[in-house]
Design a protein around this nucleic acid. Structure first.
Lengths: 356, 356
DNA sequence: ATGAAAGCGCTAACAT
DNA sequence: ATGTTAGCGCTTTCAT
């Protein structure tokens, strides 16, 4: 049904080897023969069989990507970038969703090895439980971790600089005159959750903001809402609520608004990631932007490097995110007069000189 | 480096043929030999080379999926479902993003054919411009369209019932007492945009709602905001703004709120898709929920059917979505007294009997 | 039930 | 520069 290289060779009156060479261009062929083969291929609608080629060359031109959860809006953006970078190299993306389960993740990694992928990009779902499978996989095939990572120095890694990101946000809040804060994050099961929590402590110290504590759940808006309820119940309200990602922040803001607490008038809120919803939320959310394009590009570069020289030292590339200032820390509630968010009038006066 | 079937056979003291049979289970082997081979495979850490297997069997156990844009939140949900359905069948997903460009889409389809995928799922980005490539591809490999489709009866299709979805929303609005409406949709380049526009007209007639017109842009919140501005500028405000998807609706609501127009007090707003943001928007959005799981499952079923019997009649499966009623058509703005959204007091009185 | 042998379609030595 | 030949690792006739 479909033409093979043998058919092309026959029609062009050359051997299959020559036909192969003429089409792949990997070795010189006389111009006359070359065009003759090209024409024959065109006439037959010849398409190389990549499976056969892969078997022979021991290269599949395929990259595996394992994400913890594709419905987490960060990952589609990453997938889009990686897919786009791969296209000019004629490589294809084999995508796997680990469903936030280290066991499923391990199976997916094995499945990718079985398919002879040339390299794997993975964002491990658990800093501890993903460790074994990721390390084992990295021994068999070039592997680079993206965004999240397992503990220890096991492979290359590219991701956002969680530390700098949180620091930018806390610095911004400090400049806006905040003196007290609460962190709403996720249980430190993955590296992002860990780093952002640690960064919050460090940045709070650096900018002399008094942390009223950290609430840890997961990276969802539902948890953000629950955390907001706890903050309200516990009281007093901090000046700023720093959230470990945008979804949490959106949940926090929503609950605050429902309870009649105004953002940013009564309390500032910050996110992390800059997902699409961050701009569309009410109020729009101050956050830091994940540079997906850069992360995808660097991850691929590292992966290709490791395919060449498998035994060089592991690299870690932390890309500093960009601060995106929106209404949740600066804007006015539409149509409403600005009202001081500080409850204590004395502190308010002191902070005045620091304000914008 | 890595053990082959030959190594296993040697260690088990059998021929490669027997080893193959013992491991694949595709033909009977004596129990003694079977366990001996299993043990040998285990001892060597043998993993079958799927590329070699694919070349020989002419089956890759690979499915291609081409989406118009992975960052559109509907598609990650679809990908997650398809990926999950594929796992127990030991098939893998080759994902391609068409970037809303029919030319790129055509290239991706060809790339998938070149990779000998067993079947392709595609959501064509343009009802006209995608037609050629989709039809050509469907002639070479089992193909089913998902969500969007090209015009004409060219392949199987599974998607949401756009018509019923819009009808549910318009019916809901009618029951809430609305008499006038505006549709904010997208240029009818893809099938969803077309169907939803047509459905709006039909449903408006059926429920005797006077359409004040349709504004067409694209499926983004930015366009929704722009459309809202046009609606405000043109006046008078309709009773309900029916949007072709959630992103548009969120943009519309955001612009309304910024302009001091209250949703749902002054105007109702509806969406389509039930993306995650729909529940998190302010106010939360009444919409219809895409049943991703069902769509993915049916699409895969159709694809597998077509792999078996390539020449049966084309099927079209339209899954009716579920109405999800939220604040944008019923709720109260937090802490605010409910206030009639109807501007004309006379109509208000008339409509009273129809209201909830 | 098992083995021997012939490829799947392509590429890369090795010859010429 | 081109042809010949030998596989890549596996599955499946066809014998036995």
């Amino acid at each position: 049904l479909t033409a093979t290289l043998q058919d092309v060779a026959r029609l062009a009156g050359v051997s299959v080897a020559t036909a192969s060479r003429a089409l792949s261009g990997r070795r010189r062929v006389s111009d006359a023969v070359s065009t003759r083969v090209q024409e024959a291929a065109g006439a037959l609608g010849y398409r190389p069989n990549m499976v056969a080629s892969a078997l022979r060359r021991q290269v599949t031109d395929t990259i595996g990507l394992v994400v913890p959860q594709i419905t987490n809006p960060f990952f589609p953006a990453l997938v889009e970038s990686v897919d786009w970078e791969l296209r000019p190299m004629a490589k294809q993306l084999l995508l796997c969703d680990a469903r936030r389960d280290p066991e499923i993740e391990a199976q997916r990694l094995q499945a990718l090895i079985d398919r002879q992928v040339d390299g794997i990009m993975v964002s491990p779902c658990d800093v501890i439980k993903s460790s074994g499978a990721v390390r084992a996989t990295a021994k068999k095939v070039p592997l680079v971790q993206v965004d999240r990572r397992i503990s220890g120095e096991a492979t290359d890694w590219v991701g956002v600089d969680d530390f700098q990101g949180i620091r930018l946000l806390v610095e911004h809040a400090a400049k806006a005159g905040t003196a007290t804060s609460v962190f709403v994050g996720a249980e430190p099961k993955n590296s992002s959750a860990r780093e952002r929590l640690a960064a919050f402590s460090a940045a709070s110290d650096e900018f002399s903001i008094a942390s009223q504590g950290a609430l840890l759940g997961d990276f969802t808006a539902a948890w953000g809402a629950e955390a907001a309820r706890q903050i309200i119940a516990t009281g007093p309200l901090p000046d700023v609520v720093v959230c470990a990602n945008d979804l949490i922040a959106i949940g926090v803001m929503r609950e605050f608004l429902t309870s009649g607490i105004r953002v940013p008038d009564d309390v500032l809120v910050t996110g992390f990631d800059d997902i699409a919803s961050a701009e569309l939320s009410t109020p729009s959310l101050t956050t830091v932007r994940q540079p997906h394009g850069t992360i995808a590009r660097e991850a691929l570069r590292l992966l290709l490097e490791r395919m060449e020289h498998s035994s060089q030292a592991f690299q870690r590339i932390a890309v500093t995110p960009e601060l995106v200032i929106r209404e949740s820390t600066t804007g006015l509630t539409a149509g409403e007069p600005r009202r001081p968010w500080r409850h204590d009038a004395t502190e308010q006066a002191e902070a005045g000189s620091l304000g914008p």
